[in-house]
Amino acid sequence: MGFLESVALYNFLRGPMVWITFIIFIVGSIYRIYTLINLAKKEKVVLPFINIKAAIKSWLHWLIPFASRNWRLKPYFTTFTFLFHTGIVFVPIFLYAHNALWYESWGISWWTLSETVADVWSIFVIIGCLFFIGRRIFDPTVRFVTSYSDFVFVFICLFTFLTGFLAHYQWILPYRAMLNLHIMFGEIMLIAIPLTRLTHMYYFFFTRAWMASQTAIWKIKDW
């Protein structure tokens, strides 16, 4: 327990590790997007058929809860997945504590969430994680196609939010240890985004655009 609580670990995670994380995250993301577009250029049948108007419509319909047929067919899943995904993107950005860090380092800050909203939203994200894990274990269809990496992704998100929440209320572990864990998992998550299938965060827009363009040629809607 001593190591987790140590200031040395905290300094490492707050110092060089942050830089490494952000460099990997930003450079990796740009690289992933760039290579995909570059590969698509080589295939003659992809880019000439992309229809931006259809793609935007399709993005909107799939990014708004219950706007597409499959979202309506699965109301529970839709609720959890939207709370989870919006939470995982917006809570870290607009959290007051994170903003304070930005302010400390570079003197920038922006609009923040109130504490209650952030807490409730984090709890929803945690519930969403548990829902996904439950689905992967108890739904035979999903269980059949689940690999270990799928669990790992969900657990990374779960631990990041859980440790952050617990650190804020200083439960279970001492504050310093929990905070170190929280920073560590957060950094792992950011690094994992460009390196693993978590890139679906970016690729969503590409694959959706492709299908939307195809269905636009077929004169139907893909939502």
Binding site: L36, I37, L39, A40, K42, E43, V46, N70, L73, K74, F77, R135, D139, T141, V142, V145, T146, S147, D150, F153, R197, T199, H200, Y203, F204, F206, T207, W210
Partner: peptide
């Protein structure tokens, strides 16, 4: 390696939502 295969394999998050279709 082609863009379409790459995008499909690396995006699928194994959610099983297609099953109902």
């Amino acid at each position: 390696e082609t863009a379409r295969i790459k995008a499909i394999v690396e995006t699928c998050i194994h959610c099983g939502l297609c099953a109902e279709a």
